[in-house]
Every structure is written in structure tokens, then in C-alpha cells.
């Protein structure tokens, strides 16, 4: 049976190594992450060993290897947010959720992604949960915010 990854790969005929990143981006857009299946099939398609694909994909921050949580939390680590303490926000978030950036909680509810500047420096430090911006973040505010989302689940 054809999977959605097959359908994406089928659209690209006669592509070589140079198409790798574009292909991975397209797959991640549809799937939300790069699965083992995605890595293997992209490798077969382009004739590249999976280790090379994984090497390229881990080089860039944009690729993830676990499905996103129901609530995907982007933590801005741009300059303005950094100056106003985004590191402690990230660390507290990782502590509360018991996962690291790039990972998803076991119940599948939350995932954390570290992003460079998201262009909302006026709101720094800022996090973005499923498209909603939460401004002037502090480590103390996190618990309540997470609880609100948990109730929505």
C-alpha cells in the first residue's frame, strides 16, 4: 500500500542528491516529522545511504525525528529573548515536561522546539504554542499555561 511518503517521493522523478533537503522539508511538512520510513525511502529514491541523510537532517535545526505533540511549543532563543532570560524559560519547560528540546512527551501532548528569532522581539521572551504567542514569559508562568492546555486535551 502506498503511504503519503510514497506519494511525495513519486512526485519527484529523476531527482538526485541535490534534491535531498527540499524532499525532507516536503515530507516534514506533511508528516510533521521525519520517520524511519521517510529516511529509508528518501535514501532509496535518491541513492544515498541513510546515515548521510540522517547526518544532513540533524545538521539543520528545522528537522525533527519524533512526531509533534498535540501542543507544539516553540521557544524563541533569538537575541532579544535570550537577553531577557529565554534560557531559564527553556530549562524550566524541559524540567516540567521531562523532555528535551526536539522531543515529545510520552503522552503525546507536548513537544518542544527551539527556534531562532520568531520576529516578536517586543514580546520577549516569547513562546508560541500551536500558533498562539505567549509574551513576557517567565519560568514561573509556565506551569499555569501548561495546565490550561492540558485541560483542553
Amino acid at each position: 500500500m502506498k503511504t503519503s511518503i510514497d506519494n511525495i517521493l513519486d512526485k519527484h522523478v529523476g531527482k538526485g542528491r541535490d534534491a535531498l533537503i527540499a524532499l525532507l522539508q516536503e515530507i516534514q511538512e506533511t508528516e510533521g516529522f521525519l520517520s524511519e520510513e521517510a529516511i529509508v525511502k528518501t535514501g532509496q529514491k535518491l541513492g544515498i545511504p541513510t546515515s548521510k541523510i540522517y547526518g544532513v537532517a540533524t545538521f539543520y535545526n528545522q528537522f525533527r525525528f519524533e512526531p509533534q505533540g498535540k501542543f507544539h511549543i516553540q521557544v524563541c532563543r533569538g537575541t532579544a529573548c535570550h537577553v531577557l532570560g529565554s534560557l531559564t524559560v527553556l530549562q524550566e519547560l524541559e524540567r516540567l515536561l521531562k523532555v528535551k528540546a526536539g522531543q515529545t512527551t510520552r503522552d503525546g501532548l507536548f513537544s518542544i522546539e527551539v527556534v531562532a528569532c520568531i520576529g516578536a522581539c517586543g514580546l520577549a521572551p516569547v513562546i508560541n504554542i500551536n500558533g498562539t504567542f505567549h509574551a513576557n514569559m517567565t519560568p514561573e508562568k509556565l506551569e499555569n499555561i501548561l495546565e490550561t492546555y492540558r485541560k483542553q486535551a
Binding site: 524511519e36 529516511i39 545511504p49 541513510t50 546515515s51 548521510k52 541523510i53 540522517y54 547526518g55 540533524t58 545538521f59 539543520y60 525525528f65
Partner: peptide, 20 residues
Amino acid sequence: GVACIDYINRGSKTFIGTTL
């Protein structure tokens, strides 16, 4: 011709590892 390993990650977090 096996290409079992490659550079994983970037910068100071780089290490040599296998797929996934």
C-alpha cells in the same frame, strides 16, 4: 561501501554516529 556512520548534529554537538 557500507556508509554506516556519518557526522550527526552540528557545531560543538557534532559526533560520529549511525542512522537514528
